[in-house]
Amino acid sequence: KLLSSIEQACDICRLKKLKCSKEKPKCAKCLKNNWECRYSPKTKRSPLTRAHLTEVESRLERLE
């Protein structure tokens, strides 16, 4: 599967780190437990900047 097509777990399953069936409108866990089942939009991760990478590398060197 391509990364862009990976389905996201519902908010509660993601928060509780449960295996989500990803069914809509309610996944199996939410249906069974009568929880409100919501699927928040995916958040875009910002790409690493060179400055951040350099900072992490220098912190790693100090720890070694």
Rank of each mutant, 00 (worst) to 15 (best):
W35F: 13
L60G: 05
Y39S: 04
L3F: 14
H52F: 09
R14T: 04
P47D: 08
L2D: 14
S40T: 09
T43F: 08
I6F: 13
S5R: 08
E23Q: 14
L3A: 13
E36Q: 09
A28I: 09
C13N: 02
P47N: 01
K44S: 09
L2F: 08
A51G: 08
L18D: 00
S4L: 15
I12A: 10
P41C: 06
T54D: 09
P47A: 08
E64K: 10
K22Q: 07
L63S: 01
S21Y: 02
D11K: 02
K17A: 04
C10D: 01
Y39A: 04
R50Q: 05
R45V: 00
C13Y: 06
L31K: 15
W35I: 15
N34E: 13
Q8S: 12
I6N: 10
E7M: 08
E7C: 10
R50E: 05
R50S: 07
K26T: 08
E7Q: 09
S4C: 11
E57D: 06
E64Q: 14
N33A: 11
T43S: 12
L15Y: 15
L53K: 04
E36S: 13
T49W: 03
E23S: 14
K29C: 07
C37P: 01
R14L: 05
C10F: 01
C13M: 03
L60R: 03
A9Y: 01
C37T: 02
W35C: 09
K16Q: 01
N34F: 12
L3K: 01
N33M: 09
T49P: 00
S21G: 09
K32N: 12
T54E: 12
R50I: 04
T54V: 08
C20N: 02
C10I: 02
A51H: 10
K32D: 07
E36P: 13
R59P: 03
S4T: 10
A51C: 11
P25D: 08
K17D: 02
V56H: 06
W35L: 14
S58R: 09
R59G: 05
K1W: 03
L18K: 02
D11P: 00
E61C: 13
E23N: 14
H52M: 03
K16T: 00
L18T: 04
D11H: 04
Y39M: 05
K29V: 06
L3P: 07
V56K: 01
K16F: 07
C37W: 02
K29P: 03
S40Y: 06
T49V: 06
K26F: 15
N33G: 12
L3I: 11
Y39H: 06
K44T: 12
C30I: 04
S5L: 13
K29R: 07
K1D: 09
H52I: 02
E64V: 10
N33W: 05
R50P: 02
I12L: 09
A9W: 00
K24Y: 15
R59D: 02
C30S: 02
E55N: 12
V56S: 01
S40W: 03
E57K: 03
A51T: 08
K42P: 15
K22V: 07
K32G: 11
L31A: 15
E61Q: 12
C13A: 01
K32E: 06
T49E: 00
C10G: 00
K24V: 15
R62I: 13
L2T: 11
I6P: 10
P41A: 10
K17Y: 06
N33Y: 12
L60P: 02
L3E: 15
K19N: 05
C10K: 05
C27A: 04
A9L: 01
H52G: 00
R14V: 00
L31E: 12
K42C: 07
K1A: 11
S46I: 01
K17L: 03
A9I: 08
S58C: 15
E61R: 11
L15S: 09
C37F: 07
C37Y: 07
C27M: 02
K17T: 03
K22L: 05
L60F: 09
S5K: 07
D11M: 05
P41W: 04
P47M: 05
R38H: 13
A51Q: 12
R59C: 06
C37E: 01
S58F: 13
C37N: 00
S40Q: 07
C20G: 04
L63D: 02
T43W: 03
N34T: 15
P47W: 06
K29N: 07
K32R: 15
K17M: 00
L15Q: 07
K42A: 12
K22N: 06
E7F: 11
C27R: 07
S40R: 06
N34Y: 13
I6L: 13
R14I: 00
L60W: 00
C20D: 03
K29T: 07
V56W: 01
E36K: 12
K32F: 10
E23P: 04
A51V: 15
L63F: 13
R59Q: 12
K42E: 03
E36H: 13
E36M: 12
K32H: 12
K26R: 14
P25C: 02
L18R: 04
A28W: 15
W35S: 14
W35P: 04
Q8W: 08
P41F: 03
R62K: 09
S46M: 05
K29Q: 08
Q8I: 07
I12E: 12
C27E: 01
K1E: 03
D11S: 05
C30R: 03
L31R: 15
E57T: 03
E23T: 14
A51E: 08
L31I: 12
C37K: 01
L60H: 04
P41T: 08
S4R: 05
R45C: 00
S40L: 07
K24P: 08
K24D: 12
R14A: 11
E64W: 09
S21W: 02
T54R: 06
L63Q: 00
L48V: 00
L31Y: 14
T49H: 05
K26I: 15
S40D: 02
S5Q: 08
N33L: 13
T54A: 09
L15C: 11
C27F: 06
K29E: 02
L18N: 14
K17F: 01
E23A: 14
A28G: 09
Q8R: 07
L18Y: 10
N34W: 07
R45F: 03
R38K: 10
D11I: 03
Q8L: 11
K19G: 15
K26C: 13
Y39L: 05
W35E: 10
R45N: 02
R50V: 05
K44V: 15
S5A: 09
R38I: 15
E61P: 02
S58G: 12
P25V: 03
T54Q: 11
L15N: 11
L15F: 12
S58T: 09
L48P: 04
T49C: 05
E57F: 07
L15P: 00
T54P: 05
Q8N: 12
T49Y: 06
R14E: 01
K44Y: 10
E57V: 05
R62A: 15
L60A: 13
K26V: 10
K24N: 15
I6K: 08
E55R: 10
S4E: 14
K44H: 11
S21F: 01
Y39P: 02
R59H: 09
A9Q: 06
N34K: 13
S46R: 01
K42N: 08
S58P: 04
K24E: 14
H52K: 05
I6W: 13
P25I: 07
R38P: 05
S40N: 05
S5T: 08
R14N: 03
L53E: 08
T49N: 00
C30E: 04
L2Y: 15
E61T: 15
H52N: 08
I6A: 10
R50K: 01
K26G: 14
C10A: 05
C37R: 04
K26S: 12
L2G: 13
S4V: 11
L2Q: 14
K42H: 10
K44L: 15
R59E: 03
L53V: 10
L3D: 15
K22I: 01
L53N: 01
C13L: 05
C37I: 00
N33Q: 13
R50A: 00
R14C: 02
Y39E: 06
R62Q: 14
L48S: 03
S4K: 05
R14F: 03
K44Q: 15
I6S: 11
C13P: 00
E55C: 13
H52E: 07
V56I: 07
S40H: 03
C10R: 06
D11R: 02
E57A: 01
N33E: 10
E36D: 14
L3V: 11
S4D: 11
P41S: 08
I12Y: 13
K26L: 14
K17Q: 06
L60Y: 13
S46E: 01
E64Y: 15
W35Q: 14
N34P: 01
L31N: 14
A51S: 09
K16A: 02
L60N: 09
L2H: 14
E61W: 13
L53G: 00
T49F: 04
C27G: 01
Q8D: 04
L2C: 10
L63K: 01
C30L: 01
K19W: 05
T43E: 15
E55T: 12
L60D: 03
P25T: 07
T49L: 04
R38L: 15
R14D: 03
E36R: 14
S46G: 00
